[in-house]
């Protein structure tokens, strides 16, 4: 499989890069530091550990998705490594998809390592912790996949710095669209109302994937909801990848 070959090569590149280990180290350190923080808070210690653990998985996942994602395609063009690949019997979209899946593979490994550390820590504090946190991690992972696709989209036509800025903004906005719509609906101007509503449905709504607070407070989250959120993620990713492929297909590599 050509796509798999590209994906594995991308994964290999990430694995042989130091930045991954640095980030992983900090993530584990942060999860571990929740023990300390937990001690400072009187009462609900596992809440702090869960908060910190989930936040670390999400934050460091986002950092990796953005840091690696923005260079994903750009580096291949910059270093001209793409030249030899495009000259092989492979469609450009296959190359793009391979790069994407390669980074996703990297993220899977990363998230699994972090989650294992986190859950072991939980077991140390509670004999039988609520395994609903796995649902939260699952949705965090879908958020990461969506962010990666956005990083890839920008990376397919602009420099890493610009892509980084764009992707980061999308990440922030993605978490605020709900609030924006709410603010907009309070506005008197119909135009503002419509614009915020339009943006709400157009921009990625990353809050869909955020069930951290629910899970930490043991509020049930149905599988139906998880399914909706995952489908939303997959469809959104499909759209983003489609746009990336269109842009990528048309550009010159010079």
């Amino acid at each position: 499989m050509k796509i798999a070959a590209i994906a594995i090569n991308t994964f290999r590149e990430a694995v042989r890069d130091k930045i991954l280990y640095t980030l992983l180290f900090f993530a584990i350190a942060m999860i571990a530091s929740s023990i300390l923080l937990g001690k400072l808070v009187i009462g609900d210690q596992t809440k702090i550990i869960k908060d910190m653990g989930l936040a670390s998985i999400s934050l460091f996942g986002v950092l990796i998705a953005i840091f690696v994602g923005i260079g994903l395609v750009f580096k291949e063009i910059e270093r001209k490594t793409i030249y030899t690949i495009i000259a092989k019997p492979i469609q450009r979209y296959q190359f793009l998809l391979g790069k994407y899946l390669g980074l996703i593979l990297t993220l899977v490994v990363e998230v699994v390592i972090m989650s294992t550390g986190f859950i072991l820590l939980l077991f140390y504090y509670e004999p039988s912790p609520d395994m609903d946190i796995l649902k939260a991690i699952l949705l965090i992972f879908f958020e990461l996949m969506l962010i990666t696709s956005i990083a890839l989209l920008f990376s397919s036509f602009s420099t890493p710095i610009m892509s980084g800025v764009f992707t980061l903004s999308m990440y922030v906005i993605g978490h605020l669209t709900g609030d924006l719509k709410m603010l907009g609906s309070k506005s008197e101007s119909a135009a503002v109302k419509h614009i915020t509503e339009f943006m709400y449905y157009l921009l990625p709504n990353l809050e869909n994937f955020n069930i951290k607070a629910k899970v930490v407070h043991n509020i049930p989250v149905s599988w139906g909801y998880i399914l909706y959120a995952m489908s939303y993620g997959i469809l959104y990713i499909a759209i983003i990848l489609l746009i990336s492929a269109i842009i990528f297909q048309r550009r010159d590599f010079k």
Binding site: N9, R12, E13, R16, D17, R79, K80, T81, Y83, T84, A87, K88, P89, I90, Q91
Partner: peptide, 20 residues
């Protein structure tokens, strides 16, 4: 793209994946 099955290409000043 199918023609590329039978083409070999060496670019100018080639850069390769140096981690391989």
């Amino acid at each position: 793209v199918n023609i590329k099955r039978d083409i070999g290409f060496l670019p100018e000043n080639p850069y390769f994946y140096d981690y391989l």
